[in-house]
Design a protein around this nucleic acid. Structure first.
Lengths: 346, 346
DNA sequence: GGTTAGCACTCACTAAGAAAGAGTGCTAAC
DNA sequence: GTTAGCACTCTTTCTTAGTGAGTGCTAACC
């Protein structure tokens, strides 16, 4: 059977109606609202064809039609019009994502927040995977009498701190010296590799007092490196679930949130996805538990290299067009903002 | 009417049964499970008295009894036995809260997580209010070619970073100098006061190049100070709401989460509370929307001065005894861990 | 041959009624 | 003061019937 012009128009009408109403769409609704120029009966015939072709389903005999994953796929690939963000929308995003005063992890967190606010879905972001991450320098500074703070800077600009409680006295000079020694030893090495070396052996200085300090500092150094390497996962808009009709059922809402709560698993799902803006709809998702969700992710880059992901998860019925536009705009913006050789002039 | 021995025993039985079952408790249940030595009829009479005294209510004529806020108050003040944490429980908490390698804000965040896991309720913490917070030093370090990172250390050990994108070239020496100048200018001053001064005027150096750098740095400096002063609010265990029978009703679950989502308001509620371990039950809470919740908060201190709060929110039916023990143990531990003159030897 | 009106049919949803079960409240006897 | 007995209340669950939205089929129409 052929997917002719009229069938496409009807399908499109059904999809956009359903996306907004969340109610199965009947033939009369279409003929009334979308001015097809044919009677409901004709539309019914077409709908019946579309159903046979796998684009529509029936919750039950006497209900209207609901788009299938296949229909959304067609819609996303061919039918939907590209949504252009208004200038105000763009400006709001830029303002709230003011990257001049943010480290990128804060910016990502903020992006997640904005995204859930705009889309009314659950949004998430995963920080860049940093297997290639290399150490830039370490800096140890005094905090209190018996506490120091260690800053670890990675080449990408990824930054992490640790407070370390020392059991030995220190002076600022010694800290500075120790920082230099550690930096000298490990600069330019992959964090991953540093973690794998037998650090206690590889690290040796002839200065006794420094070694004593290092004894306290090294464990924190390692665990902080681990922290940096751990993929950080951000979520926002979890309570939006209450305004999504698909999750009016307590059981489904719980299921959704518990899926999102198994952060390790969810991070794996994200890490496995290809780069670029990817939409997976319903059973296109590899995981059983996501068979009636859609997932949209896009990749952002820090300095053109490290890549993280930003996206939303929700019911298959979602406003794909607007949402992808927002996500794309945000990732574009982040890419620019965290480009190392950003030489634009303002 | 007098609250005699037997009435108290019955009340206690009802409360502990209801705390675990979440079902209205009938006279037969009490006589069967708690071996009162009297018949259900007698217990019914006593229950009727207790109801008249305001300790019990009736969802409807033919249901069992449910403790009122007044009953929980009595229970919390007089009836409940102090719950002693097991050594394993204590050890688990200590292990997970390993403060040797954490700044206090991470520790607080972690504490919130542990608390919700143990209690199966929604837990929260508010970072110390820092009106008295004073600047210790500022340190600006290179990050990338055109980006630097500014570290602001407060006297309490509160630490904050900002990445700053410069539009002018810099050298490490200049950054170090600028750090020193800023530190020199503002060291020991209240963050609050620094924010209020006309910073551009008050801050002047005769070195032209430095001024140019400062131009880019100062806005970030200020906004980071603001960040530190903003009370940070942590939540965890939000999805626990699905396993609490009181929130089986979608509407109530949403209400609960939306209350907790209005972070500003919720922070205000917390800030208004007295210090120490405070339990407010049902309509003892000032806010209408919290009239069927109980709130338990405890105060922790950083360096004996700055005080934040840690606690849980849930239905009035909660395991007060265990929960307060856990919270108290955690705050005690935090107090010790972040005591400035901690001289214990291990 | 495509289009349409007409109509029987399906199925979710709602309301109303009936039956069951848990628990109270009262009374009268112990 | 305590208890057994029993009527009564109210929720919960299960039926049953009615309603309405929407389909699917057929026969007529252009």
């Amino acid at each position: 059977m052929e997917l002719n012009e009229r069938k496409l128009r009807i399908l499109q009408a059904i999809i956009s109606d359903f996306i907004h109403s969340a109610e199965p769409v009947g033939s009369r609704t279409i003929s009334r609202k979308y001015d097809m120029g044919v009677s409901p009966a004709t539309i019914r015939n077409e709908m019946s064809d579309l159903e046979q072709m796998g684009f529509l389903t029936h919750p039950h005999t006497s209900a209207g039609r609901v788009p299938s994953a296949k229909a959304y796929r067609l819609y996303v690939d061919d039918l939907m019009e590209r949504h252009e963000l208004t200038d105000e929308a763009k400006q709001t995003i830029r303002q709230q994502l003011d990257t001049n005063i943010m480290e990128f992890d804060k910016a990502i967190e903020q992006a997640t927040r904005i995204l859930s606010e705009i889309t009314n879905l659950i949004s998430f972001a995963i920080a860049p995977t940093s297997e290639e991450e290399r150490l830039k320098y370490v800096n140890i500074l005094p905090a209190n009498e018996d506490t120091v703070v260690m800053m670890i800077m990675a080449e990408s600009g990824n930054l992490s701190n640790a407070m370390i409680k020392l059991r030995v006295p220190y002076t600022e000079e010694k800290l500075a010296l120790l920082s230099k020694v550690i930096t000298y030893n490990f600069r330019g090495k992959k964090l991953d590799d540093i973690l794998r070396t037998d650090i206690i052996r590889s690290f040796e200085t002839d200065i006794e007092a420094l070694n004593r300090l290092a004894e306290f500092v090294m464990p924190s150094f390692l665990s902080t490196l681990e922290d940096i390497l751990n993929v950080e996962l951000y979520f926002d808009g979890l309570t939006n679930i209450f305004s999504i009709p698909e999750y009016n059922d307590m059981e489904r809402a719980r299921e959704m949130l518990s899926m999102v709560n198994r952060k390790k698993d969810f991070a794996d799902i994200l890490l496995q996805r290809d780069s670029g803006t990817i939409i997976t709809i319903g059973d296109e998702n590899d995981f059983e538990s996501m068979h009636d969700c859609s997932l949209i992710t896009a990749t952002y880059r820090i300095n053109g290299k490290l890549a993280g992901k930003l996206g939303v998860i929700g019911p298959t019925r979602m406003r794909y067009s607007e949402i992808t536009s927002v996500i794309d705009y945000m990732t574009d913006y982040l890419n620019q903002a965290f480009q190392i050789s950003d030489t634009e002039d303002t």
